[in-house]
Every structure is written in C-alpha cells, then in structure tokens.
Simulated scan of single mutants.
Amino acid sequence: MVTIINTTEDEPMLAVVRSTVELAWADVGAEVTDPEVARLCAEAQQHVLAGRWLDMAALMLASVDLLLLATRLSDKAAADLECSLTVICNLVTKAGSEDEALEIARLICAKLTHQPGEKPTLRIKVLFSLYNLLPSLSGKALVYRKALELAAAGKTADCVVPTFKNIDAFVAYWGIGKPEQRDLFLAVTRILKDQKGMTKEYFKFLNKYLATFDGS
C-alpha cells in the first residue's frame, strides 16, 4: 500500500514526476499513460519516504528525458521543464552528506551534458542553478567545468563568456590545484579561440594555461 505524503516540502518533487510523465506521454492514450504515471509516482513516494535522494534524482531525470530531447516544446512546456529541472537540482540540498550531494550533481551533469545540441541555453542555465545550490566547493568547480563543456559543444559560448572575468576569483574560492586549473584554462581558451574580438582574452588565458606547467 502506498503512503500518501502530505508535507508541502516534498510535494513539488512528486508533482514534477507526475507532470513530466504526463507531458512526455501526452500523445499516448490514457490507458497507457495513467498506469505509468501511477507507477512512477508510487516509486517516487517510496524514495521520498526512505530519503533515497540519489534514486529520486535518477527517477526524476528519467522522467524529463523525453522533454529534454524534444525538438519542439510549447512555451508552457518549456517553462515547466525548466521548473522541473530546478526542483531536481534542489535535491542536492536534501542529501545527507556532501558526497551524496556530489553524486546527485554528477548524475544531473551527466544528463544535461548528454546530447548538448538540444536546448543548450536551458541546460547551462540549470547547471548554474545547480552550482549555486551545491555546498561543496569541489562540486561547484565540477559543475562550472561541465557548463563550459556544454557551452562549447552546444555552441552557446555567450552563456559562459561573461563569467570568464571572474575566473581568478573562482579558482581561489574553489581551492583547486594546478591540474584542475590547467583543464579549466584550456577549456576557456578553446571557447575563446572561436570568439570574434576576443583575441586578447584568448592569449590571456592561454598564458594562464601555460603557467600551470611551471614547476610541475
């Protein structure tokens, strides 16, 4: 027997599962959709009751998969998708440890960086939301790096280039070592290389990249 959860704190997650499954299966008859919605909602409730947030993230990400890959969405569906992804990102704040939060973040990053050509701007926006929610500095560094990868692959450099002026502050804040800095600066130079009017910035970060080899 499924226990019904009445707490408003957890209702958004269950609503996301229900709404995204209904949207994804909108073209299928109710005889197929209704049992699937009921099954996934029951599974989601059990994850919430048991505090299995990593499993909950996996289930919710699976429920938005078809919407992420849809070539066309109405404005309302697109807004619902963004809202759903934001709720999923919020799961990192429920995790029982930084390690669990990082695992959830990795799961979200893997989903959002898969097939980056579909809705890349939305995906990057969601990654930045995830960045702000994560308590772990190493997790923040990981998510930012994934945002750069997504921007490069999805040809949406304009979403991340404005953040490059803060790179030095980010590096100091995250406390990452030279190997991580090297990867970061290389990713930035690859993005800037193809940007018109940013030759100066390109060479600036190229020099930063080369400097990480000093004393290695």
Rank of each mutant, 00 (worst) to 15 (best):
S129A: 13
L130P: 02
L130R: 03
L133S: 13
L134N: 13
L137F: 05
S138F: 04
A141C: 01
V143P: 07
R145M: 08
R145N: 02
L148T: 06
L148P: 01
L148Q: 03
L150F: 09
A151N: 06
A152H: 10
A153G: 09
A153E: 13
K155D: 15
T156G: 10
T156C: 15
V161G: 06
V161M: 01
V161C: 04
T163R: 09
F164L: 10
K165L: 06
I167G: 01
I167P: 01
V171I: 15
W174E: 01
W174S: 02
I176F: 08
I176Q: 07
G177P: 00
Q181V: 00
Q181F: 06
R182F: 00
D183F: 06
L184N: 00
F185T: 07
A187S: 13
I191E: 10
I191G: 07
L192C: 06
L192V: 06
K193V: 13
D194N: 14
D194R: 12
Q195H: 05
K196D: 12
K196F: 03
G197K: 06
T199R: 12
E201R: 12
E201D: 15
E201I: 02
E201S: 15
F203N: 04
L206N: 11
L206D: 12
N207H: 13
N207M: 10
K208T: 05
Y209Q: 08
